[in-house]
Structure formats: C-alpha cells, structure tokens
Simulated assay, not measured.
Amino acid sequence: MSRKFNALKLNATDNVAVALRSIHEGEWLSIQGDSEIVQVMQKIPYGHKIATTLIPKDAKIIKYGECMGISTEEIQPGYHVHVFNVRGLKEEERLSSTKEVQLP
C-alpha cells in the first residue's frame, strides 16, 4: 500500500515543511523521508510553511537548507509559519547567511 504525504521537507536541515494540500487542525504531518511526528495545531493553507520543531523567537527559519527569515515570536511545532511571525533578513544578516563559493 502506498502512503500519501501531506507535506514536504525540501532539505533535511529545514525546520519547516511545506503543505502539499490544505491541512486541517488535528491532522498529523506525513513527510516523505522524515520520521518526525508533528500534529498540526491550526489550519495550514496549501503551499504554506509549518514548523516541524520548536523555533525560538529570533531564530532562523530554514527552508531549502537556507535561512529565509527570522522568527518574531516563538513558534511551536505544528503551527503556521508566515509573515505574521517571520520577518525578512536585514542586509547584514542576508550577507552573513550566504555561503562562499570556492572556485577552482
């Protein structure tokens, strides 16, 4: 029997998953290749991010294995991660989060 997944983690280091469909409060995340057990605590719209671990206030939001923002409040696992609890990176944060590419 094939298992259906309702979320996708884009990189093993991510602390968020992306909803593959609208996910309702009380459902459990089913993430391919991930054994984390997270209950969804509020409705998550299709394509939006869900915290898979506790994200402290002022912590990096990691998606694609990269920092895509900073939390403005503590975000518990299973909660929506969006513009109301994440801010964009300041210029110095953006520059310090980029990886240097080594050229041959």
Rank of each mutant, 00 (worst) to 15 (best):
A51N: 06
T13P: 00
H48E: 06
I75N: 01
V86N: 00
Q39S: 05
Q42D: 07
I61A: 02
E66S: 10
P56N: 09
D58Q: 13
F5H: 15
G69S: 11
L29E: 02
I70C: 08
Q102T: 15
V83E: 05
L8A: 05
I23K: 02
H48G: 09
C67F: 00
E27Q: 12
N6V: 13
L29H: 04
R87I: 02
N11P: 07
H80E: 04
S30T: 11
E27M: 09
S35G: 08
I50F: 00
I62S: 06
A51E: 02
A19F: 07
F84K: 14
A7Y: 05
K57F: 07
E36R: 14
S30Y: 06
L103C: 10
L20T: 12
G33E: 01
V40K: 04
L20K: 03
G26V: 09
Y64E: 08
R3E: 07
R3M: 09
A51V: 11
P56V: 05
A51Q: 04
A7T: 10
K43A: 13
A7L: 05
E66I: 10
K90R: 15
F5M: 06
Q32M: 12
R87K: 09
E91V: 13
I50E: 02
K60H: 14
S35T: 15
K90D: 01
G47Q: 10
L20G: 04
I23T: 05
H80C: 10
K63E: 08
H82V: 11
V101K: 04
I50W: 00
L8D: 01
N85Q: 06
K57T: 15
I23D: 01
L103H: 13
H82L: 03
M41L: 09
D58R: 13
A17G: 12
Q102H: 12
F84Y: 14
M1E: 11
L54C: 12
E74P: 10
V81I: 08
E36T: 15
E74F: 06
E100P: 08
G33R: 03
Y79I: 00
Y64L: 10
Y64N: 13
L54K: 14
Q76H: 12
P104K: 07
K9V: 14
E91S: 13
G69Y: 08
L29P: 10
Q102R: 13
A7I: 08
I75H: 02
F84I: 05
E91N: 10
T53R: 03
I31W: 04
V16K: 01
L95T: 14
